Amino acid sequence: MQAYKKTFLAIAVLLIMILITFFVSLNLGMIAIAPLDVVRTLLGFGTERDELVLFDFRLPRMVIALLIGAGLAVSGAILQGVSQNGLADPGILGINAGAGLAVVLFIYFYQGSAANLGIDSIFLMPFAALLGGMAAAFMIYTIAWKKGVTPIRLILVGIGVNAAFGAALIIIQLKMDPQDFMQATIWLSGSIWGTNWKFVTAVLPWILFLVPFAIYKARYLNILNLGDNIATGLGAAVEKERRLLLVLSVALAGSCVAVGGGIAFLGLVAPHLARRIVGPKHQIMLPTAAIMGALLLLIADTIGRNFLAPSEIPVGIVVSAIGAPYFIYLLMKTN
């Protein structure tokens, strides 16, 4: 009972922090809006300028940040559970890079311009990212397999595949015109600048379906952490569940990359923080990681929008500045 109270309190605190950050972020930006004016605008009594700024620019961007943060955090938690590797993350392992390459190829061949995406392409981009992420995951596991997959071998192969996809991305970008090249570069560094409600509706169904499904499958992550022999003895179809969970993780990462670019380290940091707060039981840890990821990305986006205003720092760079030292710390602790 004490453990459940602690978990409930932790989740409640995280949700309150999200609400506070969300409201503060609505106030801040190139056009500052007073808190009272924000409330008036949300209730339908604001000026036309405030309505334009809040409903057409800030709100969709912040909702995107919450959705992507939750999706990447759950994706990272699944990867860590499936691989039994605390260093696993869709950005580090190259899954984000594979998804990003597929999206850039889709943009390049489908429309020839990253600036003029139609509504059809916006909704097709997550599917392209899914295929790219699956290709990356297949390559990583195939190359890393040597009578099994060890955690360090998985990380090293993932870093290599990440570098290979990064080189391929540069080659494709060089074939774009300069304006599209700059847009693709900023987007791939992890930028949710310029998002609108169409992008929200493109990623929302993926998060609303896949995150609850991941929580439903969380018990298999607990079983897999006991080892393949024990998991098989308990009646689990180990390889089937591992493949399904891997596809689930890649689908979450791909849908997030499609609208938010390559945001690394969030899928690494959020599950670790959630695990420290509520423990390793995945039925509780996964939703906590989702909330933690949403909070971290919302904070990072607020910092990126305002730290060097009127210029913006891509949110992926802000997350990397936080996550990279933590990754090095975890790597030093790994035997």
Rank of each mutant, 00 (worst) to 15 (best):
residue 3 A to S: 07
residue 18 I to D: 07
residue 19 L to S: 10
residue 23 F to H: 11
residue 25 S to L: 05
residue 27 N to S: 15
residue 29 G to C: 05
residue 35 P to V: 12
residue 38 V to D: 06
residue 38 V to A: 07
residue 40 R to M: 07
residue 40 R to Q: 15
residue 42 L to W: 14
residue 44 G to Q: 12
residue 44 G to I: 07
residue 49 R to W: 07
residue 49 R to N: 14
residue 50 D to S: 13
residue 54 L to Y: 03
residue 55 F to W: 13
residue 63 V to E: 08
residue 63 V to F: 15
residue 76 G to F: 00
residue 77 A to Q: 00
residue 79 L to Y: 09
residue 80 Q to V: 00
residue 84 Q to P: 03
residue 86 G to M: 00
residue 89 D to G: 01
residue 90 P to H: 04
residue 91 G to S: 13
residue 92 I to H: 11
residue 93 L to P: 07
residue 96 N to I: 13
residue 98 G to R: 13
residue 105 L to V: 10
residue 106 F to P: 07
residue 107 I to H: 02
residue 110 Y to I: 09
residue 111 Q to K: 11
residue 111 Q to S: 12
residue 115 A to Q: 11
residue 116 N to H: 11
residue 116 N to W: 13
residue 117 L to Q: 10
residue 119 I to F: 13
residue 119 I to D: 09
residue 122 I to Y: 05
residue 129 A to W: 15
residue 129 A to S: 10
residue 136 A to F: 10
residue 140 I to C: 02
residue 142 T to E: 04
residue 145 W to Q: 00
residue 145 W to M: 01
residue 147 K to W: 03
residue 150 T to N: 00
residue 153 R to Y: 03
residue 154 L to P: 08
residue 156 L to K: 04
residue 156 L to W: 01
residue 163 A to P: 02
residue 167 A to F: 13
residue 172 I to L: 15
residue 182 M to W: 09
residue 183 Q to T: 12
residue 188 L to W: 04
residue 191 S to F: 10
residue 192 I to Y: 07
residue 192 I to A: 04
residue 195 T to P: 05
residue 210 L to K: 11
residue 212 P to I: 11
residue 218 A to R: 06
residue 225 N to W: 00
residue 226 L to H: 04
residue 228 D to Q: 04
residue 235 G to F: 15
residue 236 A to M: 15
residue 236 A to G: 06
residue 239 E to A: 03
residue 239 E to T: 06
residue 241 E to P: 01
residue 243 R to V: 01
residue 244 L to P: 01
residue 246 L to G: 11
residue 246 L to P: 01
residue 247 V to F: 13
residue 247 V to I: 13
residue 256 C to T: 06
residue 270 A to N: 06
residue 270 A to G: 02
residue 273 L to R: 01
residue 273 L to D: 02
residue 274 A to N: 08
residue 279 G to T: 06
residue 283 Q to V: 02
residue 284 I to W: 05
residue 286 L to G: 05
residue 287 P to T: 12
residue 288 T to H: 11
residue 289 A to S: 15
residue 289 A to P: 10
residue 290 A to T: 10
residue 296 L to C: 10
residue 302 T to N: 13
residue 302 T to G: 09
residue 315 V to Y: 11
residue 317 I to L: 13
residue 317 I to C: 15
residue 319 V to S: 08
residue 326 Y to P: 07
residue 329 Y to P: 03
residue 330 L to V: 09
residue 331 L to Y: 02
